[in-house]
């Protein structure tokens, strides 16, 4: 097994080991932190499909994260108040079932990514960055000014939604759900990168003209990648909202987009397990530095600057040395 492979295995095992140790020591807060890492890493895995594989620097992925969050918030709040979402032409009721919420979040995220991607992908480079950012802000301001679902205050859910056969209020069981989804997403993203589609997408990033010459449409490849990416990020959003039992426009803010991107960079761009390492380091820093100083973002900013300027492979790159994963 290569060095990168070993590091990936260690990263992957780190989460359940931490959660297991916390369970033995009876530290539910640590389990919740591990759950948060798993969910944020899932958002990073989603963005990484567009960013690492497709080379699409989207600064608007908080839009999909937030859409997932609101899918959960809206469905659960209707179930909580026993008011159906819609009565005509047919009845749609709210739900407390996680699988249904996930399905809705994934579909909503994919549709939003389809609309935003179809427009944004007409442009490239710096235009693409600014336009995805602007679309993200558009949804953010919409969520703030639309009063039906809490507006600026957000939506609170009293009880965490249910999963058949599990008690989701037990931290370790909810961690299990998040971790299994993360594992599936990592497996799926790995398969995707090795599939004909993934290879074509990677090729379109490296040399667009050549891909076009062999008869593939870069636009379509990128749009599909953007849609898959948005759907995975929306799923992470639904889980994140369930973790906090709260959703607010903050989930849609562009700082959130920046943070999801930070997970990828800290971990290492184009690495499958990069977001896991990045999210873990981010949460660790938040708690270590956050305990030392209220202004820990200054240190985070300095660290990020150093990584971008001097350690371009991120954590995995630094640990694995020069050996490049896939690029």
């Amino acid at each position: 097994m290569s060095r990168t492979g070993l590091i990936n295995l260690a990263l992957f095992a780190m989460l359940p080991l931490t959660a297991g140790a916390a369970l033995m020591l009876d530290e539910p807060f640590i389990i919740t932190l591990a759950t948060k890492v798993a969910i944020l890493a899932l958002a990073g895995v989603g963005l990484n499909i567009a960013l690492g594989l497709g080379g699409l620097v989207s600064l608007g992925h908080a839009a999909f994260f937030g859409i997932g969050g609101y899918a959960m918030g809206i469905l659960a709040s209707h179930a909580q108040s026993f008011v159906p979402l819609m009565e005509t032409p047919f009845l749609i009721e709210g739900t407390r079932s996680m699988p249904v919420i996930w399905l809705v979040a994934v579909i909503a995220g994919a549709l939003a990514a389809l609309a935003i991607g179809a427009l944004s992908l007409r442009t490239t480079g710096v235009y693409f960055i600014m336009i995805t950012l602007a679309f993200g802000q558009m949804l953010y301001y919409f969520a703030i000014s639309w009063p039906a679902y809490g507006g600026e205050d957000g939506l609170s859910i009293y009880v965490r939604n249910g999963f058949p056969g599990l008690n989701t209020l037990d931290p370790i069981q909810f961690f299990g759900i998040a971790f299994v989804i993360l594992a599936l997403a990592l497996w799926g993203a790995g398969r995707l990168a090795a599939s004909p589609f993934g290879l074509a997408l990677s090729a379109a990033r490296q040399n667009e003209a050549r891909v076009e010459t062999v008869g593939l449409s870069p636009y379509r490849l990128r749009l599909l990648a953007f849609v898959i990416s948005g759907a995975v990020t929306a799923l992470a959003g639904a889980l994140f909202a369930d973790l906090n039992r709260f959703v607010s426009p903050t989930m849609l803010s562009w700082q959130m987009s920046g943070e999801i991107m930070i997970f990828i960079i800290l971990g290492g761009v184009g690495r499958l397990y990069g977001p896991v390492a990045g999210a873990a380091l981010f949460i660790l820093l938040e708690h270590v530095l956050g305990g030392l100083s209220d202004f820990w973002h200054v240190y985070l900013g300095l660290l990020l600057l150093l990584v971008v300027l001097f350690a371009r492979g991120g954590i995995i790159g630094a640990l694995a040395g020069r050996e490049v994963a896939h690029d």
């Binding site: 960013l51 620097v57 600064l59 480079g125 710096v126 960055i129 920046g258 991107m261 930070i262 960079i265 761009v269 202004f295 820990w296 973002h297 200054v298 985070l300 900013g301 300095l302 990020l304 600057l305 971008v308 300027l309 371009r312």
Partner: peptide, 28 residues
Amino acid sequence: RRLYDRDHLDQVLATFALILIFSEGTRW
């Protein structure tokens, strides 16, 4: 100065890092 030859992703992240430093520094 170190970012001119880099791709846009590096520029976005480095300047995002500057925002964190400026904002929290000003709050400080």
